[in-house]
């Protein structure tokens, strides 16, 4: 994994959608958590799904992964419809979240081999060893899941999510518990993966600086709706702010009504 912050040259990737969601709605006990979200992510694209706590980000991600059934709307992942073709779709998707622990009674290498097998990798052990090496944590292979620091856990979670070279990588708060150095290494690794493999990235984060560095496009949600969609600079301009942090704080203060209608991406 590279430690430099030099942009990784990106291989040309055909502009085809790996994720398309239309009109997603989810209601919990008369509270509408997601209210008609449309989202498209193309191959090789790096998209951030942003918004204050309770905006509907995680519910949206979990619907896109087939874990939560939407009340309305359609989801297509790598050309497969959810929930009908969930299993086939998930072969092409990787997921990691900063808040998920590693199972306690598995060594790191066992954890990676287990998930490698679930994702259909023919020889998961060498792939796991190589991935640990690439992320610079080969020495953790024999460590038990509960012996890792939160940063190490996150790295292993990301390795697990990328082991099968997915076409879409979904990350929920991937760097929330990482120190700046490890966060940078993760960011660089993700950039490299997306550039070299053409993997599309859909990520949620509260770290706006990181999002501006990593993502081509940001989608802001608030109150379960998409309120802005564009490059970081476009979105900041649309809200009359200097940067994404300004937009975030603006939305967190409840200023949703004065948003200019989002442009189609």
């Amino acid at each position: 994994m590279t430690e430099s912050s030099t942009p990784v040259p990106r291989a040309p990737v055909p502009r085809e959608p790996v994720l398309q969601a239309r009109g997603l709605v989810k209601e919990y006990k008369r509270v509408r958590a997601v209210d008609g979200i449309d989202l498209r992510v193309d191959a090789g694209e790096r998209v951030a799904l942003l918004g204050p706590n309770g905006a509907g980000k995680t519910t949206t991600l979990l619907m896109l992964l087939g874990v939560i059934t939407p009340d309305a709307g359609e989801i297509e992942v790598v050309g497969k419809h959810l929930p009908r073709d969930r299993s086939a779709a998930m072969e092409q998707v990787g997921f990691a979240a900063g808040y998920l622990p590693l199972p306690e009674r598995l060594r790191v290498e066992e954890f990676l081999v287990l998930f490698g097998r679930l994702y259909g990798i023919p020889s998961p052990a060498p792939a796991a060893a190589l991935a640990l090496e690439r992320f610079g944590i080969a020495e953790l292979a024999r460590a038990m899941g509960n012996e890792l620091s939160s940063g190490q856990r996150t790295l292993v979670g990301i390795i697990k999510a990328t082991l099968h070279q997915p076409r879409l990588l979904v990350l929920d708060e991937p760097t929330a518990s990482l120190d700046p150095d490890v966060a940078r290494r993760v960011r660089n690794g993700l950039e490299r993966l997306c550039a070299e493999e053409g993997t599309a990235l859909l990520v949620t984060s509260h770290n706006m600086v990181e999002v501006e560095r990593l993502c081509d496009r940001v989608v802001f949600v608030s109150g379960g709706r998409v309120v802005a969609d564009g490059t970081a600079a476009e979105v900041a301009t649309r809200f009359g702010r200097d940067d994404l942090e300004g937009v975030f704080l603006h939305l967190a203060d409840g200023h949703v009504a004065d948003v200019v209608q989002p442009e189609a991406s």
Binding site: L65, G66, V67, S87, A88, M90, E91, V93, F95, A97, L100, P101, P103, E104, R105, F115, L118, Y119, G120, K160, V170
Partner: peptide
């Protein structure tokens, strides 16, 4: 108990 349910549910595992 090991909060592994979500990890499993986002794999192709049926």
């Amino acid at each position: 108990w090991s909060r592994n349910l979500l990890n499993l549910m986002v794999t192709p595992l049926s």
